[in-house]
Amino acid sequence: MKKLSVKDLSKPIILVAFFLILTILRPSSFLTVGNLGNVLWSVSIYGVMVSGTIFVFLLGGIDLSIGTLCGLTGVTCVMTIRAFGYTPAGVIAGIAAALAVGLIAGLIHGLIITTFRVPAFLVTFATQTIYLGLSMILTNNKILDCTSPALFTSIGKNPVPIILMAVAALISWYVLRKTETGRYVYAVGGNDQAAAISGISVRKITIMAYMISGFTTAIGGIILSSMTQQGMASNGSGYEQYVIMAGVIGGISLLGGEGTVPGAIFGAMIIGLLQNGLNLMSVPSTQHGLVRGLVIIAAVGFDALQRDTKFQSWLAKRRQARAAGKSAA
């Protein structure tokens, strides 16, 4: 069995530190089932989305369209439910339609990127505005209410989003760690030319990654529309920043080939805990950006130092020197 090192434990250490600090600062309100449920609930959409988008990140790609695609899939779901007269059958049809839209969007991204060899940044930047535009046309920029049936509204209520996040993360972790497909993703992300020479279809893997990203984005869109009980064009806009941030905080390299699902979920948790801590401590909203930035730098810096071999060897030498000094004394 592999021995755990400080390097492997740095993220749990940071999480425990967050928990300790917030428990000390807000003893009566932080460490309660209700509040921790609130934290998980608030990051569940990012957690679901990053569980799929991680496939794209690991290939060294990027998906900037997930924010507006989240809005479009939510709008699709709500419009279908309304068309079916707010019935449970409508909810199932709505979910299917939203997932289909997500998959098709991913397929389109993958096809364009692999066929025309256009950078993913450009393709998804363009489709980002296309999806927002489509949502605006579909809704005519109106809010589409959807306050029933209960089958739909319950999707956004605790603990369903948290369960969905856990399931998405587990499946994603399993595929990446335990299957051949997962190994191919890391191989293509590490060196696509070497992967191609070894017989891996880079095109297939790329298309699949973007389709998975679209699929989890659609799940995020369905959850968001249920949480807010409405479909609205601008819903989800900007979520791509949080998903990318969760991934990067979690140690995913945007150059590809490096990163894990637990890391990405850790990143999402840090975002949620930070926001929760700022709210619970009544920090004025004008100071949120500053505090958030500083804490993220501190957390990521600590994590990076644990991985830095030069720093670790310097630390080891210091420890040895100190021990030698003590024994000499």
Partner: peptide
């Protein structure tokens, strides 16, 4: 007793309100 920003967003306001209710 408190004021927090939810950036004009419905989903964010839910999180902020949940924090108020906890606090």
């Amino acid at each position: 007793i408190d004021k927090q920003s939810a950036q004009f967003e419905k989903a964010t306001a839910q999180t902020v309100m949940n924090s108020f209710l906890q606090n």
